[in-house]
Write a protein that binds this DNA or RNA. Structure first.
Length: 104
DNA sequence: ACGTTGACGGATT
DNA sequence: TAATCCGCCAACG
């Protein structure tokens, strides 16, 4: 499995109505510190059925600029994600990935 | 091999 | 709360 697959797998595990962050996805995928690369991988995941809209910036704000950002918000609201102003209520909608297994 | 890019993040001011 | 700064690193040309 390469980096791209690791990220896609993790993002696909985010349940409907919940969201995560670039940093958290990177960690859950076993690639801590690569938040920016998660965004890169997500950009090319749009056509593969990956719920890219469920990944937000730290603190729950949409970082995708322009029209795409509005689309993301719309998709999330349709999934039942609650927003508090411009950011999503991470308290309620933040997904918690199961802890990763230690190397053995 | 190498400099640039960017849907980041957190620490600081 | 917001603006800046800076470390991060895979992908690209």
């Amino acid at each position: 499995m390469g980096y791209f697959e690791d990220v896609q797998h993790v993002v696909r595990s985010i349940p409907r109505g919940k969201v995560s962050t670039y940093g958290d996805v990177a960690r859950a995928a076993g690639h801590p510190g690569t938040a920016r690369q998660v965004a890169w991988a997500l950009r090319d995941s749009r056509l593969l059925g990956v719920p890219w809209q469920r990944v937000l910036g730290s603190g729950g704000n949409i970082l995708l600029p322009g029209h795409a950002g509005l689309e993301q918000r719309t998709l999330l609201e349709l999934e039942g994600v609650r927003f508090a102003g411009a950011r999503v209520d991470m308290k309620r909608c933040g997904h918690r990935f199961p802890a990763r297994r230690r190397k053995r």
